[in-house]
Design a protein around this nucleic acid. Structure first.
Lengths: 358, 358
DNA sequence: ATGAAAGCGCTAACAA
DNA sequence: TTGTTAGCGCTTTCAT
């Protein structure tokens, strides 16, 4: 098959008998062009199968309408839901997503460098941190960055995160109120700030209540299998926990299966389990997992808002937004009076509010 | 904050005291340039924070190194796993992904038009079909398309799909052999060809075996909740099924929970259930779902291979590749002699081979 | 409302 | 090996 030469605005202009400027104007909202010529141009364009070349346009307009999104975590279903929403919502606003995956945290920089080369108008970094140096490059170039679910030192990026300390306090309170006394903590990457904060908050709150204590704190545990295996460790100890708090629903489900199936433990009577993220599977009848729900859609909307506003006005300062998470009470924790257990339909957007930090 | 002007090859050239061509050459693998000037250029570039502008480069090179990926289905975890792999593997080969989400099948065309404007070098369309007209535009422009998990009429696109008929035959055989006699079928979108084919194959095979029959065939059922609800319909019928075949694991898990929890049915003794896709959750001990496993990674590799090869040589004809799926025997079907049940680690890439069709 | 000309930042011939 | 020149396909003053 022979590949035709590209059809350009010149071809369309020739066919329509107008100048290239007119072709350009025909494809620009609100440009001063007569109905008549516009129609002629559009017809010619259609006939030739012409599509304006965004590359050339970007070159001269100095904006690509491209937003780079860097995904560091795919394991948690939370993030793919998020990715999809970013994709849809940004497209509605006229932006396209260029997607980059990083496996090791170290890749972030080279990834960002590529985004720079593609002249992205902005970047969303999910669950990872750029170096100060590369972050600085973005600032210098006036390209806004939003950090999603991760906070970093002063790289001049906006960030949208859950309020981990508050979550920690809530969890601790709930567990103690429900009569759990020997609490174990399981989290993912031990270096991630949010995990550290949550851990601290739980430990502190439990201690303050003077009832029960945190008897174990495991880190670097990811996903179902690791969660299930962790139960083994925990239960073979002399001091067995009567509650386990996980930093992801997948891990929590692993723990749940480990407890119920491998050890025949009665959840929630003998053992309470709390997850994080309210993944679809948390709702499944077989799991019915008590968990923490983040107002994902609001977080996404806010990310987009802060990104685009900084894009329009580069003088705006980056902001740190914190989302209030709620606990969703289901069947893996004992019921306490004033809790409202979740029999409602899945609606990730209820009862949330945002705090503005600094 | 003041936004600096863009730094271009001209700036670098000035600082390094060379021509812009030399700057270009310094950033091109294997260009004829002396070690000395290259080093000088790179140093100057680094000092200024210069990154080559891919837009400008693409304009002149007539290739963007951009691959468009159109996602029509996010519900099935299968697809996000796939997206991630495409992202990683294509990046290794020097391509970036521009991600587009479509909700309604009708959006596909406008989406593809945008990809055209972004001058993508190729496109991967996941679980959706472009119109003949737009597909034709891609052909005309010599831009290869790969259809992933969907086959279409002659739009000149390559396609990579599972062999649905073979899957249907296998499933039917397995069920009949295990003594199931009243089989119900549940699938997603009723217009999707692969679902139709699989349904046909099951019906035909069951009939040929002269044991049992397909007593129901439901369509347009997606996800956990719909699956769980479907059990209600099925079980309130006079003729209850003793086996249910689902076109997705999520649906199957919904069915499983519906059967066990809502109806107290003994799975697999009273009711056999088979899913599709071998999602991570299928392996969970609580589900332990018998399902169909596609060789995802091979399918992805093949997609990339056929895409890139056609990109290099536009004269290559598009191909249709069919992947052989295997059944993974777990706990939701009765055990039959020669089955090997799955106690192994999760490895989606075993025991598969590809057939070349036409 | 329209066209001519200039130029976005880069690479590819061609000379030197 | 290096620099000069031209031009990728578009938008945008500036005239008309």
């Amino acid at each position: 098959m022979k590949r035709k030469d590209r059809v350009t605005s010149r071809d369309v202009a020739a066919l329509a008998g107008v100048s290239r400027s007119s072709v350009s104007r025909a494809f620009t909202q609100g440009a001063s062009i007569s109905k008549k010529t516009k129609k002629r141009v559009l017809k010619a364009a259609d006939k030739l199968g012409y599509e304006p070349n965004v590359m050339a346009r970007s070159l001269i307009m100095r904006r690509s309408n491209l937003i780079g999104i860097v995904m560091a975590d795919w394991v948690n279903p939370f993030y793919t839901i998020m990715l999809r929403q970013f994709s849809e919502k940004l497209r509605e606003r006229g932006y396209q997503l260029i997607l980059m995956t990083v496996n090791v945290e170290d890749d972030v920089d080279s990834t960002l460098r590529q985004l720079l080369q593609y002249q992205v108008d902005g970047a969303i970094i999910v669950s990872a941190l750029p170096s100060l140096r590369l972050g600085g490059q973005f600032i210098d170039k006036g390209i806004p960055i939003v950090l999603f679910n991760r906070q970093g030192p002063g790289i001049g990026a906006s960030s949208v995160t859950g309020d981990e300390s508050a979550v920690g306090r809530k969890i601790a309170t709930v567990l103690v109120d429900a009569g759990y006394r020997r609490i174990a903590l399981i989290r993912g990457n031990r270096t991630v700030l949010s995990g550290i904060r949550k851990t601290e908050a739980i430990v502190k709150t439990v201690k303050a209540r003077k009832k029960g204590k945190v008897i174990a704190s495991l880190a670097d545990i990811f996903g179902y299998d690791a969660g299930r295996a962790a139960v083994l460790d925990l239960m073979n100890n002399k001091s067995k926990p009567d509650a386990i708090v996980c930093s992801s629903d997948l891990t929590a489900i692993g723990v749940l299966d480990g407890a119920r199936i491998d050890f025949g433990i009665d959840v929630p009577e003998e053992l309470g389990i709390i997850g994080f993220g309210d993944a679809p599977a948390a709702r499944w009848a077989s799991n019915n997992l008590t968990t923490v729900r983040l107002p994902v859609e609001e977080m996404i909307d806010l990310s987009i808002e802060t990104l685009l506003s900084r894009l329009q006005d580069p003088n705006l300062e980056p902001v740190s937004l914190t989302a209030n998470a709620n606990i969703v009470f289901r069947g893996t924790t004992r019921i306490v009076e004033e809790q409202v257990s979740d029999q409602s339909k899945y609606d990730p957007l209820k009862n949330h509010s945002f705090e503005f930090v600094e």
